[in-house]
Design a protein around this nucleic acid. Structure first.
Lengths: 151, 151
DNA sequence: CATAATACTTGAATATTATTCAATATTTAT
DNA sequence: ATAAATATTGAATAATATTCAAGTATTATG
């Protein structure tokens, strides 16, 4: 049995959306052709990278969110990007940043529950030149991806 | 002089986008009316919260990204949400989470440069029951909002 | 400063896409 | 087993994006 919903969520996570030109034109009180032209410019010069959906993550089985602070092995200091690029392919990974401070990297992870999170830490984060991880578990999200949540 | 680009970026940050139903239908090899129906369901039940753009943040003067770990004053422990809700209105704030661990809150901030970041820390974060902040400055972003960046 | 080149704006026409609707099929509840 | 509620779908329509060509404004160049 195929699940359309699941496939939809997967596609809308990263893209398959487009701006609502007419609505923007009304809001800004400009002709829609002017809005169209300007948006195409932003796309052409890659200022806009994607159009995507923001979800109620609990409703799509990504209810657990963790920030993971990562320490790399000394021999990976030189190219933290290698590790990061391996990690970013995983769908559970919302963001990856190489950072200053007491850790070399911070990643934001969304999993269904603690089981899936544990599997990810065990199977993925334990490898790849990572020597230590510190998990910060989100108890409540007030804003995500610039979108304010609930109340 | 009005800047259409600036207004566009502001609107697309949080919304004013919509799914590309025909493209999704082609990709999933389903009739577009079926896709339409299912997406409307997801919207009605609020599983989808918004459709928005993801940017090359450097190109829109939000080139500096910081994660800020926050310690609240003891008398704010009980309602970290009060502080969080005050902070989330700021456009520089990409996300706010109340967390477990050595800090009560983590926020992700995007500013044009160190000056704007400093102003934010000084003017906004110094108030509101926050007693200590630890900044993690992003040196390089490999993925953001589920969207992989460059190379 | 003058003028050419380039970039931006816009209304009208067209192409494409979303949406509605009604019929049918499927799933779920009793 | 049967009824009720949900989901799928093609055809028709409504709405929207896109193209085009003309005009306007801005920027570069001598």
């Amino acid at each position: 049995m195929k699940s359309i919903r699941h496939d939809l969520v997967e596609l809308l996570h990263k893209g398959y959306c487009t701006p609502r030109i007419v609505d923007i034109a009304k809001k800004l009180k400009e002709p829609s052709t002017t809005i169209h032209y300007n948006i195409k410019q932003l796309e052409k010069e890659k200022t806009i990278r994607a159009y995507k959906a923001v979800f109620d993550y609990k409703a799509i089985d990504e209810g657990l969110c963790n920030y993971v602070l990562i320490n790399l092995a000394p021999d990976e200091y030189g190219n933290p990007e290698r590790v990061g690029k391996e990690l970013r392919a995983y769908p559970q990974v919302e963001s990856i940043d190489i950072i200053t401070g007491g850790w070399e990297m911070i990643i934001k992870l969304r999993t269904k529950d603690m089981d899936e999170y544990y599997q990810f830490v065990k199977n993925v984060l334990s490898k790849k030149g990572i020597v230590k991880t510190t998990s910060l578990t989100s108890l409540k999200q007030l804003k995500t991806e610039f979108v304010e949540l609930q109340e």
